[in-house]
Nucleic acid binder design. Structure first.
Lengths: 153, 153
DNA sequence: TCCACAAAGTTTGATACCGAACTATAATTA
DNA sequence: TAATTATAGTTCGGTATCAAACTTTGTGGA
């Protein structure tokens, strides 16, 4: 434990937190929604408009293949609509549907108690305090990847 | 972004960090090793001795099914050995092999530069500073799960 | 002693991801 | 203009993970 480098210990904790939080969230989400799926719906609600799959992949820092899969599942549930991009023969345009908006709002309500408990349980102040540090780590890793960047993302 | 609850924003960052760090690690690891597989080898090297699959599942906070899968892959690579528990007909005992030790050491060497760059890039001090906070979050989520605890873990 | 319940492992069916290979279309450049 | 390169999406194969169902073996109590 203590003989592991601090960066490794941090990554360890982050990995376990991600796992625990993810399963707790998905337990609460309606409609068999996953965090990945909810995040896409939430993105559309917060920012509005349309997006291409490639833009979404970049926003969430996942590969295009991963985004293809998530979008196909959302479309199967009628939570988003996908149409060909009239201006670019290669592209598609994605938008949230009314049902998608409803499910997103229901999801927010469903996870709100969990988030509130968490902000009480670990202190909202503490969470706010580490957020900038986490952003710095994310930015670092994002930069580190440049050059070694795969085809996507 | 800013209109999401702070707990959600923290989880978002953590999820992306986990993803980026995980792929960076696995790019460096030898033998097609994954972080999950490396972690098991590392666990044996740090703590020594034998473990049952159930103990390992608890240590890493994954389900028994997940640990079964990881152990099968490690065994296929001859990095661990699994034998029946002579004292408990249901149980098994897992130990690292010499090859496992060698691969673990090679892995540590392989990821060391990455960890060092990271400790420079984001500051080892800052990493040390958030570690206790991350532990607190992990402990909170772990407690939150109690009662709602599945069959395993 | 028997039976109900608990614990150890495995298997199955989903989802998320990645990397790599591939198709089609656009943009650049020679 | 033709050839090259870049971008958008999809598909495939592989791993991790969870939840749930199932088998086998222990344990504890009536």
């Amino acid at each position: 434990m203590t003989d592991d480098p601090v960066a490794f210990r941090v990554m360890n904790e982050i990995g376990i937190i991600d796992q625990l939080a993810r399963t707790a969230f998905e337990r609460a989400l309606p409609d068999g929604l996953t965090v990945a799926q909810f995040s896409v719906l939430n993105h559309f609600m917060r920012l509005g408009g349309e997006r291409t799959p490639a833009e979404l992949a970049r926003s969430f820092q996942v590969t295009k293949g991963t985004m293809t899969s998530t979008l196909q599942r959302l479309e199967a549930k009628r939570l988003i609509e996908v149409r060909a991009d009239p201006a670019d023969g290669r592209g598609k345009r994605v938008a949230i549907t009314d049902k998608g908006r409803a499910v997103r709002n229901a999801s927010v309500s469903a996870i709100a108690p969990f988030l509130e408990r968490m902000e009480t349980g670990v202190s909202a102040v503490a969470l706010s305090a580490i957020l900038p540090e986490l952003r710095r780590i994310r930015a670092y890793l994002d930069g580190e990847r440049d050059g070694r960047r795969p085809q996507d993302i």
